[in-house]
């Protein structure tokens, strides 16, 4: 009886929390369904059915093309991040020599580098080596900047895998490199889900890099495409709202699909063994 009462209280509190957190999205939703001329309060859902914003946003920003570009860039980057990140984390987690501690520090401190101070030198470099306006260039850039987080999470995750497993493998005669592929890699699934969600999300939402390094209309990404709605003289807020909602859908789906692993993923890295 007491248990059930408590469960009911938790449910109610949970719903209140959800209600509070959903308010901004509710506003986004009402705005996205309103005509520009509709001056009613943002709380009020329009009494008419108006999807013009979605259609206009899709067409004017060439969102079809932008989704494709962003999708290709995100998928390629994430796959490379997973490969380079898991590889790099293994020696850093397992063999903490003085050198490797420094290397780890170098990787993680890149999280802190302010992007603006490196913008101009980076841009010059891109022009010099012909990486401008290429998927290749922007993918490598995303990979580099997201790797810090991936290495950070992979390293702490591998740290929780008992060393007994390694030793067992060694007795079976595997090399250390071989052991990584045979023993460690299959165990990384949960943390990989975490990294996919977090990194895919920031690459999908990237604005700065895409703006500067992809300067051809047909290579635009979603955020850059949507930013064209912020004009000097008017902001098509309905279009922006509709576009943002559409842009968020793939991320939300990925999150819901991987949610189960996501929780496990951080768990293994987050609890003292």
């Amino acid at each position: 009886m007491k248990q059930r009462k408590r469960a009911a209280v938790y449910t109610i509190v949970g719903l209140i929390v959800a209600l509070v957190h959903i308010v901004p999205f509710y506003i986004l939703l009402t705005v996205s369904f309103k005509d520009l001329r509709d001056m009613s309060s943002k709380w009020v859902f329009p009494g008419y059915w108006f999807t013009g914003n979605f259609v206009s946003a899709w067409q004017n920003a060439h969102l079809g093309r932008a989704f494709l570009n962003t999708g290709v860039i995100t998928v390629l980057s994430v796959v490379l991040i997973l490969i380079f990140g898991s590889l790099a984390a293994f020696p850093l987690a397992r063999y903490q020599s003085r050198l490797n501690k420094w290397v780890y520090g170098i990787f993680v401190s890149a999280l802190i580098v302010p992007p603006l101070t490196i913008l101009v030198p980076l841009y010059k470099l891109f022009v010099d080596i012909g990486f401008m306006n290429t998927y290749f260039g922007i993918v490598l850039l995303h990979v580099t900047f997201q790797l810090s987080m991936a290495i950070f999470l992979y390293t702490s995750f591998i740290g929780t895998i008992p060393r007994e497993l390694d030793e067992a493998a060694m007795i079976d005669g595997a090399t250390k490199t071989g052991m990584f592929f045979r023993i460690i890699l299959p165990l990384l699934k949960p943390v990989t889900a975490t990294i996919v969600i977090m990194n895919a999300n920031s690459i999908w939402n990237d604005y700065q890099f895409s703006l500067f390094f992809l300067q051809k209309p047909d290579s635009r990404t979603i955020t850059v495409a949507l930013s064209s709605f912020f004009g000097e003289n008017s902001a098509q807020i309905g279009w922006i709202a509709a576009g943002s909602l559409m842009a968020a859908i793939p991320s939300i789906l990925v999150y819901i699909l991987l949610q189960k692993y996501f929780v496990d993923g951080i768990a293994a890295g987050a609890v003292k063994g």
Binding site: F84, L87, A88, F90, P91, L99, N100, F107, T177
Partner: peptide, 15 residues
Amino acid sequence: PVMLNWMYLPALLLF
């Protein structure tokens, strides 16, 4: 273990 350090070389190069 030193031989394992090749594994972070690609990442290090990118950085």
